[in-house]
Amino acid sequence: MRVAETNAGDLLELDDIKVKLSGLQILDGVTIRVPRGLVTGLIGPNGAGKTTVFNVISGFVKQDSGSVTYEGRKLRHIKSHHLAKMGISRTLQGVGLFASLTALENVMQGGSSRLRSGILSESFAMPWTDVEQERLRVDALAALDRLGIADQAERLPSELPYPIQKRVALARALMPNPKLLLLDEPAGGVSAGDMAELSSLIRSWVPERSVLLVEHHMELVMAVCDLIWVLDAGKVIASGTPDEVRNDPAVLAAYLGEEGAA
């Protein structure tokens, strides 16, 4: 099994995370490991707390208790804008592109954490700021090219079809050269025909990078993930390889329960 191949230790560990938001216990002692060099999936019925897990990792939600360990170090005060520097990139639900920036500029923003020059040298347009920008531009163009959309570089997001926008967002997430990619519903809005392409794209990032993704689209999850964690009502109810999870009675019950309620 693919999981067995990992012995490099875990890149990210969440230990007994509890989060209460406006009176609701969203996460109730969630423990998740994200191994190095694998694609890890986080699934669960609606309202299970998947996105909250992402928000805890990226510093948008502060846990009431529990710890997040990244590369063996405990993260105490996670600031979302420091993630990129730490080697963690996140995509957002939908696309989350900057509406007034072109596709290229959007991707360039992804490399913000690499910039060294401050506002003072920007004020005087010092030549080294241009050098930095040019390097960023070339990299961003290359990132777009790798995703096959370099010809769309000068377009605004609103001028691009949704699947292309999704790819721009992916290119932006790749700009900091992340060790860990957090993908929030990468398959959302992607047509069935493009799904295979998306799977192979995600697979192409490992084992250099590690991936944690939240997804509803079971086909994609089963196709790309090495390890899956199943969340229900703020708790991990199962974990394992796609095959193990697929046949886990607790998982079936959770998903059937949701369908029964809906």
Binding site: S58, F60, K79, S80, H81, H82, L83, A84, K85, S89, R90, L92, G96, L97, F98, A99, S100, L101, E105, M108, Q109, G110, G111, S112, S113, L115, S117, I119, E122, A125, T129, E132, Q133, R172, M175, P176
Partner: peptide, 23 residues
Amino acid sequence: GRQGRAWRAVRDDPVAAAVSGIS
């Protein structure tokens, strides 16, 4: 320049700007 783009990025989507490494 870069600063102008960063300002616009934060205006357009502060969350996306944050995960892109802009405070």
